[in-house]
C-alpha cells in the first residue's frame, strides 16, 4: 500500500509527505501497521546511504489499529535498534527517553496512521524539535483520534461519522479541525439543537 491521498481540506488538517533520507547522527523511526512499508521504501530510496542509515537507526514499531502487523518486515531491515511494541501507549515512555537523550543531528521519521503520527509528533515537539523538522508519511488506516469538545475525552480509532464518544456517550460529528497539541480532531455533539435526532453512523474512516 502506498501513501494515502487525502481530499483537500481546511488549513488546520495535517498534511503528510514522503519519508526521505537526511544525513543525521541518529535516525529515529516510529511506525505502525502499513507504516512498515514506508520505512522499507525509505531505506530503498536511501541507496548507497542505506547501510549508514540503518547503522544509526532506532526503530519503534507497533501493529496498526486494523491489526496489520509487519514486525518481521521491519525487523528484517536490520536497524541498530529495533523494538516491537504492542501499542502506542506502551511505546510512549521509550519514545520520550530516546527524544530526551537525543543530541544534535537527530532525524525523526514517522509513518503509519494519523493517531500514531500525531502523538509521536507531539512528543517530538515537547522535546523541543520544531514540528516541521519531523518527517511524516501516512500509510494504512484512516481511522481518527478525536477529542470530544464537551467532556474532553479522546476516542481512538474512530471509524464512523457521527460516532459515540467513548467517555460521555454523546453522539459527535467529526470535524477536520485538528489540534497538534492534543494530536486529535475535534468532535462536536451532532444532536445538541435537536436532542435525539441522530443521523445514521456512516463508516467514513477505514
Amino acid at each position: 500500500m502506498t501513501k494515502t491521498d487525502f481530499p483537500p481540506s481546511i488549513r488546520s488538517r495535517p498534511v503528510y509527505g514522503e519519508l526521505a533520507y537526511r544525513p543525521g547522527s541518529l535516525h529515529l523511526m516510529v511506525a505502525d501497521g502499513e507504516g512498515a512499508n514506508a520505512l522499507v521504501d525509505l531505506v530503498a530510496r536511501a541507496g548507497a546511504e542505506a547501510p549508514g542509515l540503518l547503522a544509526r537507526a532506532h526503530i519503534i514499531y507497533m501493529p496498526g489499529p486494523n491489526g496489520t502487523d509487519l514486525s518481521a518486515v521491519v525487523q528484517a531491515l536490520g536497524a541498530a535498534q529495533f523494538h516491537r511494541s504492542p501499542s502506542y501507549a506502551s511505546a510512549e515512555l521509550r519514545l520520550r527517553k530516546v527524544l530526551a537523550d537525543a543530541r544534535m543531528g537527530l532525524q525523526v521519521y514517522l509513518a503509519g496512521t494519523e493517531g500514531l503520527i500525531g502523538q509521536a509528533q507531539r512528543e517530538a515537539m515537547a522535546a523541543g524539535l520544531p514540528h516541521d523538522a519531523v518527517q511524516t508519511e501516512h500509510r494504512g488506516a484512516t481511522v481518527r483520534r478525536v477529542q470530544c469538545v464537551h467532556c474532553k475525552g479522546i476516542t481512538e480509532n474512530v471509524r464512523t461519522d457521527p460516532f459515540v464518544c467513548a467517555h460521555c456517550g454523546l453522539t459527535l460529528f467529526v470535524r477536520d479541525h485538528y489540534s497538534r497539541r492534543l494530536a486529535a480532531f475535534q468532535g462536536v455533539n451532532i444532536d445538541a439543537e435537536d436532542p435525539g435526532k441522530v443521523p445514521p453512523l456512516v463508516e467514513r474512516f477505514t
Binding site: 488546520s12 470535524r175 485538528y178 489540534s179 497538534r180 475535534q186
Partner: peptide, 22 residues
C-alpha cells in the same frame, strides 16, 4: 470556539473552520 482546543495553533490553523474567508 474552544481556547482549549485551539491553543498552540498558528493563525491559519485556528481560523481554519471559517468558510469563504480563506
Amino acid at each position: 470556539w474552544s481556547l482549549d482546543f485551539d491553543i498552540g495553533m498558528g493563525f491559519h490553523e485556528w481560523h481554519a473552520p471559517v468558510p469563504k474567508a480563506h
